[in-house]
Design a protein around this nucleic acid. Structure first.
Length: 267
DNA sequence: TTCCAGGCGTATC
DNA sequence: GATACGCATGGA
């Protein structure tokens, strides 16, 4: 990773990064394609326009930001401290993962906000990606930004009807209640051992093993968390009936994201 | 019309 | 603990 300041923009050199594969792959739901090789979106309520200037060399432009903003927010959000080249080399000891990494080598695990990731994946259950984006879009529009659990404390399952989230509204309300009452604290959960963190999250109605693992992986950057959804069930049956290979140890979730993309779009 | 979508709660055995 | 079934909504 290497960057430079260019006027009001930051120029980023990062070969292991693809905008479509990272920002539109079902891990985050608030990035909008704003032209060829360009996305607009948010980390919390900070806006970013990012475009790819040279795919072959991995050159990106972060528009209208500055060095302080880049280093304090986007460097972290885009997980630029992690060497994905080294991770992919390690994963590629496994034949299937080698193909998955070659197919979509620009996947990164975004370091999203804890609450946004948890609430987004509560909404995601038994739902499709376009509709998940629609529900979250209505939430953000209604509140003029992504609402905190505290902001949502005034809502009930009924008053959230404007989201058209169906049965998931009551799950969202339960999560808000447990977080704002102090029964659960996402900062505490983030520091717990994986199994304990998972069980803590599963005390929320509507949070099962899969949503808990997604909240841990995408919202708390617990790369050892391995969410198993319908696609991963198929991948496991097909390629890993006896379990995951040792080369993913500690990064099961990162490997999961390559496999998820590969079985959905690569076959 | 019917089926399905990055699952989970509940009932039942 | 395993397995069936319903669930709000909307697009294909």
């Amino acid at each position: 990773m290497d960057y430079s300041v260019s006027g009001r923009d930051i120029i980023l050199h990062q070969p292991d990064f693809d905008l479509d594969e990272t920002l539109d792959c079902g891990q985050a739901f608030r990035w909008v394609k704003a032209g060829a090789d360009c996305y607009e979106g948010y980390y919390l309520n900070s806006f970013l326009r990012i475009s790819c200037e040279n795919k072959a060399e991995g050159v990106f432009r972060l528009h209208d930001t500055d060095e302080a903003d880049f280093l304090s927010q986007w460097y972290n959000y885009l997980d630029l401290s992690t060497d994905y080249g080294e991770l992919k080399a390690r994963f590629s000891e496994d034949e299937t993962l080698a193909k998955a990494c070659a197919f979509a080598g620009g996947i990164r695990i975004l370091r999203q906000d804890k609450w946004e990731a948890l609430s987004s994946f509560i909404i995601s259950q038994n739902n499709n990606i376009p509709r998940i984006k629609g529900i979250i879009g209505r939430l953000v529009e209604h509140y003029g930004g992504y609402p905190s659990a505290e902001q949502l404390a005034v809502e009930t399952a009924e008053s959230l009807g404007f989201l058209r989230a169906g049965f998931r509204a009551k799950y969202l309300a339960d999560a808000v209640g447990k977080l704002t009452s102090g029964a659960l604290d996402l900062d505490v959960i983030a520091a717990q051992p994986l199994e304990q963190a998972k069980q803590s999250l599963m005390s929320i109605k509507g949070v099962g093993p899969k949503v808990a693992m997604c909240a841990l992986l995408f919202g708390m950057h617990r790369t050892e968390a391995f969410p198993v959804d319908v696609w991963m069930k198929r991948a496991l049956e097909r390629w890993y009936p006896n379990g995951l290979p040792d080369c993913v140890k500690g990064y099961e979730g990162t490997a999961q994201q390559y496999l998820f993309h590969y079985i959905r779009h690569g076959l």
